[in-house]
Computed example of a mutant assay.
Amino acid sequence: MKRILTALALAAAVFAGPAQAQDDFPNRPIRLVVPFAAGGSTDIVARIIAAKMSEILKQQVVVDNRGGAGGNLGAAAVAKAAPDGYTVLMGTVATHAINPALYTKMPYDPVKDFAPVSLLVNVPNVVVVHPSLGVKTTAELIALLKANPDKYEYASSGVGTPLHLSGALFESMAGVKMVHVPYKGAGPAMLDLVGGQVKIMFDNLPSAIGHIRKGSITGVAITTKERSPAAPDLPTVSESGLPGYETYSWNAIFAPAGTPMPIIDKLAKAGAEAVADPDVKAKLADISAVSVGAGPAELAAHVKAELAKWGPVVKASGASINE
């Protein structure tokens, strides 16, 4: 009888251990991996949200920048991490929608290797041109490009980046042809646009809005379905000449596959509360990021839709990276 009771006690301890760990979560700092260098838009968003999540969870959420391979290195590190909620990823349209079609060798599966937690924010892109081009609307830009196929160049932050593919999608939907000029980052591309070396660019709104306000470049249209509160006078591409066009960057938290649902739910709740906080919303709005705070099911559906959307665009662009 004594042996039986001992065995039952041990079994109870085994089954209670994981449950207790989930109940106590988090009892130590959480590492939020940003798969890009410090200072970029994803890093800025992550640090704003991590600070508030630290308050909500009463444990430090530490941003860990692991750039490389378009976000693949950091994402792969999280995919291989222990599924305990203490290592999570700030994923993007690149890591979970574009890279799977762009890279011939992927170190992770964007669906099978991750547990979706929360879609935190959307960041609009914007179509901008040099003032000398003489166009101010999407319809005028399309008319100019149709009359002059392959005459005009458009700049992006690099081959296969969301900004490059925003241009490729524009070409496909509008039935126009431009010459793509990839740069090593959006900063150098913007410098050449301001200088007039290139005439057209697809950029993130946060990095372009200052130049638009100064008048050094012309904002043509926002790429999201709705206008941005940061630039309410700018129409959307869809409403101003190309119905149905939509691109944007987004940031979402993912955990390794197999992370227990109670932990996922705690992280999702903390993320949603963080982006709903008035102070956080204001800070995000300053960089043109729109708070979302959607949960695991919504994020899973979002990733599925984004994969279906960007796969054909990457293929049509001819972009491919063999790493």
Rank of each mutant, 00 (worst) to 15 (best):
M1C: 12
I4Y: 11
L10S: 14
A11R: 15
Q20D: 07
Q22A: 11
P26W: 01
I30V: 11
F36V: 11
A38M: 10
S41P: 00
T42F: 07
D43L: 09
A46M: 00
I49T: 01
A50T: 05
K58Y: 04
V61M: 14
V63H: 06
N72T: 15
L73V: 15
A81D: 08
A81I: 10
P83M: 00
T87I: 03
T87G: 00
L89V: 09
T92S: 10
N99A: 07
A101T: 10
T104R: 13
P116F: 06
V121Y: 02
V123T: 15
V126M: 05
H130N: 12
S132G: 11
G134H: 09
T137E: 05
T138M: 03
A139T: 07
A143I: 09
L144R: 14
L144Y: 09
K146N: 12
A147G: 10
N148D: 04
P149S: 12
D150I: 08
E153K: 14
G158D: 15
V159N: 14
S166E: 03
A168L: 05
S172I: 12
G175K: 10
P182G: 13
K184R: 14
G195C: 09
G196N: 00
G210F: 15
G215Q: 07
G219F: 04
A230D: 14
A230K: 13
D233R: 05
G244D: 05
Y245N: 05
Y248G: 09
I253M: 10
A255E: 04
P256K: 04
P256M: 04
P256D: 01
P260T: 01
P262C: 06
G271W: 04
A272H: 12
A274Y: 04
P278I: 01
P278Q: 03
A285I: 02
A285N: 07
D286F: 02
A289T: 01
G293M: 02
P296M: 11
L299N: 06
A301N: 09
H302S: 03
H302W: 00
A305M: 05
L307N: 03
L307C: 00
A308L: 03
K309Q: 07
W310Q: 04
G311Q: 14
P312R: 02
N322T: 15
